[in-house]
Amino acid sequence: HAATELTPEQAAALKPYDRIVITGRFNAIGDAVSAVSRRADEEGAASFYVVDTSEFGNSGNWRVVADVYKA
């Protein structure tokens, strides 16, 4: 099962156990969220919340930071 994305309210009520950072070329924010979901799932997380997204220069590469939560 894939890790689910939390709302800001849900994330605020929970304590993350880790923070992950992924970088890559994403065509849309949805693609980045899917990549975070896969990584969170690999780490055994039940859910995640994207904290920050930023573009690296003009290369089209993105850096996505997310907190991950157990259950």
Rank of each mutant, 00 (worst) to 15 (best):
A66F: 15
G24H: 02
S47I: 04
P16G: 02
A28G: 15
D18P: 01
N58C: 11
S47W: 15
S37P: 03
A13N: 12
R38S: 07
E43C: 14
T53P: 02
G44M: 05
I22V: 12
T4S: 09
G57Y: 06
A46T: 14
T23P: 00
E9A: 12
V33C: 08
S59Y: 08
Y49C: 07
G44A: 04
G44Q: 05
Y49D: 01
S54Q: 15
E43R: 11
A66Y: 06
E55T: 11
I22Q: 00
Y17N: 03
N27A: 13
S37E: 05
D31F: 08
D41K: 15
Y49V: 09
Y17C: 08
Y69V: 02
S54P: 02
A13R: 14
N27V: 10
F26Q: 01
Q10C: 13
D67T: 06
A46I: 11
T23H: 10
P8L: 13
R25L: 08
A35C: 09
E9I: 08
D18K: 15
T53C: 15
P16F: 04
E42C: 11
W62K: 03
V50Q: 02
G30V: 12
E42T: 07
F56T: 09
V68H: 00
A3I: 11
I20G: 00
N58V: 11
S59C: 08
L14D: 04
G44V: 02
Y17K: 01
A28W: 10
G44D: 04
S47G: 10
V33R: 08
I22C: 06
T23G: 02
K70Y: 12
A12I: 09
K15N: 07
A28R: 11
K70N: 09
A45T: 02
N61I: 15
L14W: 07
S34N: 13
D52R: 07
V51H: 03
R19I: 07
F26W: 10
P16I: 03
S59E: 13
R19E: 00
T23V: 14
P8S: 13
R19P: 00
E5N: 07
I29R: 13
D52F: 14
A32K: 04
R25Q: 11
D31T: 05
A2W: 12
S34R: 15
S34H: 13
A32V: 12
Y17Q: 01
N61F: 15
A12F: 07
T53M: 15
H1E: 06
I29F: 11
S47M: 13
G24D: 03
G60D: 06
F48Q: 00
S37K: 15
T23E: 12
A32R: 04
E42K: 10
A2M: 13
K70M: 11
E5V: 06
I20C: 04
A12V: 08
V51P: 00
I20Q: 01
R25Y: 13
I22P: 00
D52E: 15
Q10M: 09
G44C: 08
I22H: 01
V36M: 14
F26M: 03
R19C: 05
A2V: 12
G57H: 06
W62N: 01
T4W: 10
V51Q: 03
H1D: 06
S37I: 10
T7M: 05
E43F: 14
T4N: 09
N61P: 04
A2P: 11
T7A: 07
F48R: 01
A66P: 00
A66G: 02
A12S: 11
K15P: 04
I22M: 05
A3V: 11
E55K: 10
N27F: 09
Y17R: 01
Q10V: 07
A46D: 14
S34E: 14
V51G: 00
V64T: 01
G24T: 04
S47A: 14
A13T: 13
Y17I: 03
R39S: 04
N27S: 12
F48E: 01
